[in-house]
Amino acid sequence: MTFDPNAFLIILTGTLIAISCGLLGSFLILRNMAMIGDAISHAVLPGIVLAFFFSGQREGIAIIIGAGLLGILATIIIDYLSTKVKLQNDASIGVTFTWLFAIGIILITVFAGQIDLDQDCVLYGEIAYIPLDLIVTENNTILGPRVLWIAVINVILVLLYVGFMYKELKLTSFDKQFAQTIGFSTGFINLSLMGMVSYTTVSSFEAVGAILVLALLVVPPATAYILTKKLKPMLLLTILIGFLTSLVGYYLAYFIDGSIAGAMASVSGLFLLAAILYVTIQKRSIGKGIIMPAELKR
């Protein structure tokens, strides 16, 4: 098989997005907040509509800022409902994202005659178009795909964030009460994590679409969580699974001539199924005495 530069760009971009989403998603899994990504993907719609209304552009920093601010607002509302009102966490997420998403739909309807924007522009992307969306300078120098640069920036920011906040994220994810006792600002840490999730997901929507972003945010870290209960191996496994999801998903789409994003999301689900089967078989083997627990520890 000959080298295909377009395939390389798509796989590389998918891998980078999988890494940035997966690392943040790992901490969401540990905090029992896996569906916060789905909430943010819907809740940011009003911010995107208002940003587009004032800037007149479907892409760029204005859209990211508008969506990011709504993502943070959604986080604040969810946190308030769950901590102050004592509403269940899943109910808080459901109420918040449906309410904000409905406001976004209303805004689109109201501004329908003044702006060229609909739900498809906001929530769906196509990863196959990455090699076509190039950054070209005034001297006609091609700097590469725009979305690839965004994905690179996202990975760098996420790696810096996780590296700088690793101790705080780990402690607040496993023992929030103890973190508060020793003086950690759990509210700020949670808000910073949600802010990073908002930025990363929103900036990736246009490239790969909301469905694939949500899959990469939840499924690879969930798969890693099934296979290990230690944080660092979980993060490394999440990165590996994200890469394999992008690689295998692309070639699956190539051979079946189907959606690349859909194939990647499906492959991530297959990896999760494989992990579940592996752990189930291992537990049954232990129960039958085929594998002794002491041997597993070694």
Results as ranks from 00 to 15, higher is better:
91 A>K: 06
92 S>I: 13
92 S>D: 08
93 I>R: 11
94 G>P: 06
95 V>T: 02
96 T>S: 11
99 W>I: 09
100 L>P: 00
100 L>E: 00
101 F>S: 09
101 F>K: 03
101 F>R: 05
102 A>G: 07
104 G>A: 04
105 I>E: 04
106 I>A: 14
107 L>V: 06
107 L>Y: 01
108 I>R: 12
110 V>Q: 06
111 F>K: 05
111 F>L: 05
112 A>D: 14
112 A>Q: 13
114 Q>M: 12
115 I>M: 12
116 D>S: 13
116 D>M: 03
116 D>I: 14
118 D>A: 12
121 C>H: 13
121 C>Y: 14
122 V>Q: 00
122 V>S: 02
122 V>A: 03
124 Y>S: 01
125 G>S: 06
125 G>I: 02
125 G>E: 11
125 G>H: 03
126 E>W: 14
126 E>L: 09
127 I>R: 00
129 Y>N: 12
130 I>A: 13
132 L>W: 10
133 D>F: 14
133 D>N: 11
134 L>W: 07
134 L>C: 08
135 I>G: 07
137 T>I: 11
139 N>L: 10
139 N>S: 15
139 N>G: 05
139 N>V: 10
142 I>S: 11
142 I>Q: 13
142 I>M: 05
144 G>T: 05
145 P>S: 03
147 V>F: 15
147 V>E: 12
148 L>H: 07
148 L>I: 06
148 L>K: 00
151 A>T: 01
152 V>W: 00
153 I>T: 14
153 I>W: 04
156 I>Q: 04
156 I>C: 06
157 L>W: 09
157 L>T: 02
159 L>I: 05
159 L>F: 08
159 L>V: 11
160 L>C: 10
160 L>Q: 13
160 L>F: 08
162 V>G: 12
163 G>V: 04
164 F>A: 15
166 Y>I: 08
167 K>L: 04
167 K>V: 08
170 K>G: 05
170 K>H: 11
171 L>V: 15
171 L>G: 14
173 S>W: 01
173 S>L: 05
174 F>S: 09
176 K>V: 10
176 K>D: 14
176 K>G: 08
177 Q>G: 03
178 F>M: 06
178 F>D: 12
180 Q>N: 15
181 T>P: 10
182 I>W: 07
182 I>G: 15
183 G>C: 11
183 G>R: 14
186 T>E: 02
187 G>R: 14
190 N>T: 10
190 N>V: 15
190 N>I: 04
192 S>T: 10
192 S>M: 08
194 M>A: 10
195 G>F: 05
196 M>Y: 04
196 M>T: 01
196 M>S: 14
199 Y>A: 10
201 T>W: 04
201 T>V: 08
202 V>S: 10
203 S>F: 08
204 S>D: 14
204 S>G: 06
206 E>P: 07
206 E>L: 08
206 E>K: 05
207 A>S: 07
207 A>P: 01
208 V>R: 00
208 V>E: 05
208 V>Q: 01
210 A>E: 08
211 I>E: 07
211 I>D: 03
212 L>C: 07
212 L>K: 00
213 V>M: 02
213 V>D: 08
213 V>G: 02
214 L>T: 15
214 L>R: 02
215 A>N: 02
215 A>Y: 09
216 L>Y: 05
217 L>A: 01
218 V>Q: 01
218 V>D: 04
220 P>L: 01
